[in-house]
Design a protein around this nucleic acid. Structure first.
Lengths: 329, 329
DNA sequence: TTGAAAGCGCTAACAA
DNA sequence: TTGTTAGCGCTTTCAA
């Protein structure tokens, strides 16, 4: 910067102003400064600016695992919202562990971010203490809870699963099983199972013996379905905690010669690209993944602009997607 | 930091040393400093540290679009490699535009990153000038070129497509069509088409009239296939520029009552999760997406450690995945 | 083993 | 409209 100032014959302060408050610099001077910046290829030092401002222009975002379309869609939304404001995303992963999240967070907080965006609402006590001291806005994603740390954006896992079960009930299904996952370390598996149980209870139906759990993969879905069949319990529909497991169930059905949806309805959760492409196409629930990230970014910007927090809990809803695996009989 | 120093009764310099070079501080003093840090919840200011060091601990990574598993897998690899070294990823997107990439890059460079990781090898002249001035290591991903800007990590699109065509030739296919995409703004579509053409030429076969292009989606694949059939040209195999388009081709085949692979072989590219799950499972090429990111991160760390660049071009290869759509007849 | 001084590059506040 | 001063929080250098 001093090089530019020297070349133009002004002080560094004038160069600084030409960049940040151009209206306070004589047009002719500004012109010469901008030209010198161009020829010298001067790029302002944002680190120094952040030190002075006592806060950077970064937004920390820690997700469990980047290579999972749920998270990457959300990251895309966050990025799209922040880019026009010249903010950048500092990306980290927790590997589904709140302990690891706390460690990553501690390191990232050193860069004095403008905001912190985290997945889920399970926080290590260290993270809570750190975030409280940091004093910037903290936005939690996906698991809607009534009393968030600061602000939460998501949808209700329980209501979404209830909508799925209600849909199956409306199709005349009465013995609706649930395939859960053993490796979802956040609360969504529990919340979805609760939704399934509640919907059945409201309809006056039993859920006993109708729940199986396995690894949250396609293979896990196959295994869970075999397990369910092996118990000998009667069922005419299966709700799965994820599309991946539902695809496993469908694969196993095909192997066993069970006709879907004639003999059995199957539903997934999440609207993975697979759900649409699979044969038969899978009924599922579409989640506002991109919107969650986008709205999170917009909230960050609004709060930076000093606007008050209107809603601590923002429900972005979900969409029931009925496809062939639960078609009308 | 001065708060901690005051509480312990030492200078800030001693606190700084207790953190960065503990062996140069009396064990007893160090103990008291660490304790004070704990009770006060002091978190070092990384911005100030970076200003002093004249370089941050961030690695800029700009990909075309985060919500695409090719890019998110690579980001995951980069993140995994960098995390143990306490480096962080500053994430940006170019939307497949080198102009937009240049703008994002300019803003990110202000934070004085330790390294820059970019997708592809097409750069805006402004980006090149900026990167040259920056003077940090620049790693380009995916499109292997012989003479990269600094260092490139990827695989050969052309060789991968040739391997696919050679596989079809070995199965007795002779009239092999190519379904390309009109919206891939990087070079990979061209390189893959070149691979297809070259493989046919080497086998003494014609490629004229056997290429169609459409939007790079499932719907585009369907449309391209209808177009190909409509031309009336004879063909016994179709290579697609992506799995998504190949799935579109398969959907259209099913609609037209064409048996795959009895009447027609179909191949995709990329090994999207879809490829395995689709019915019939799709033959394709698996790309080292995660490894590309991981190796990029490792290279950054090695070069930070002062190790020399052994290979400017790192070829991580690919893997031919033969599934039902091109099974032996 | 510890401390004092200086400065990384920028900008708020005040002065001219 | 422009310049001067001071300091953001840290660490390198030199001195004790």
């Amino acid at each position: 910067m001093s090089d530019v100032a020297r070349q133009v014959g002004v002080s560094t302060m004038t160069v600084s102003r030409a960049l940040s408050q151009p209206q306070n610099v004589a047009p002719e001077t500004r012109e010469r400064i901008l030209q010198a910046i161009g020829t010298q290829g001067y790029v302002p030092n944002g680190v120094a600016g952040s030190l002075r401002a006592r806060r950077g222009r970064g937004v920390v975002c820690i997700v469990p695992h980047i290579a999972n379309s749920v998270f990457s869609d959300t990251l895309q939304g966050l990025n799209d919202a922040l880019r026009p404001a010249s903010m950048h995303v500092m990306l980290g992963t927790s590997g589904y562990s709140s302990m690891e999240e706390a460690q990553v967070l501690e390191e990232f907080v050193r860069m004095r971010p403008e905001a912190v965006v985290l997945w889920g609402t399970r926080r290590h006590p260290k993270s809570r203490a750190l975030l409280r001291r940091l004093g910037v806005c903290v936005i939690e994603l996906f698991d809607l809870v009534p009393d968030p740390f600061d602000q939460v954006i998501g949808f209700s896992n329980e209501l979404a699963m209830r909508a799925l079960v209600d849909h199956l009930l409306s199709q005349g299904r009465r013995r609706i099983a649930f395939v859960g996952s053993t490796n979802e370390r956040d609360m969504s598996n529990t919340q979805r199972a609760d939704g399934w149980r509640t919907a059945l209870r409201h309809a006056g139906l039993a859920s006993d013996g109708l729940m199986v759990e396995a690894d949250g993969t396609t293979a896990g879905g196959e295994q869970a379905f075999r397990q369910l069949v092996a118990t000998g319990v009667a069922f005419d529909a299966v709700c799965c905690v994820s599309d991946l497991m539902a695809v496993g169930v469908l694969i196993e059905c095909r192997r066993m010669g069970i006709n879907v949806p004639q003999q059995l309805s199957v539903c997934g959760f999440g609207d993975n690209p697979l759900a649409q492409a699979f044969d038969p196409p899978l009924s599922t629930v579409r989640l506002p993944r991109y919107a969650i990230g986008k709205v999170a970014g917009e909230q960050v910007l609004q709060r930076m602009a000093g606007e008050p927090v209107l809603q601590r809990t923002i429900d972005l809803g979900f969409e029931l997607i009925v496809r062939a695996t639960s078609a009308v009989l």
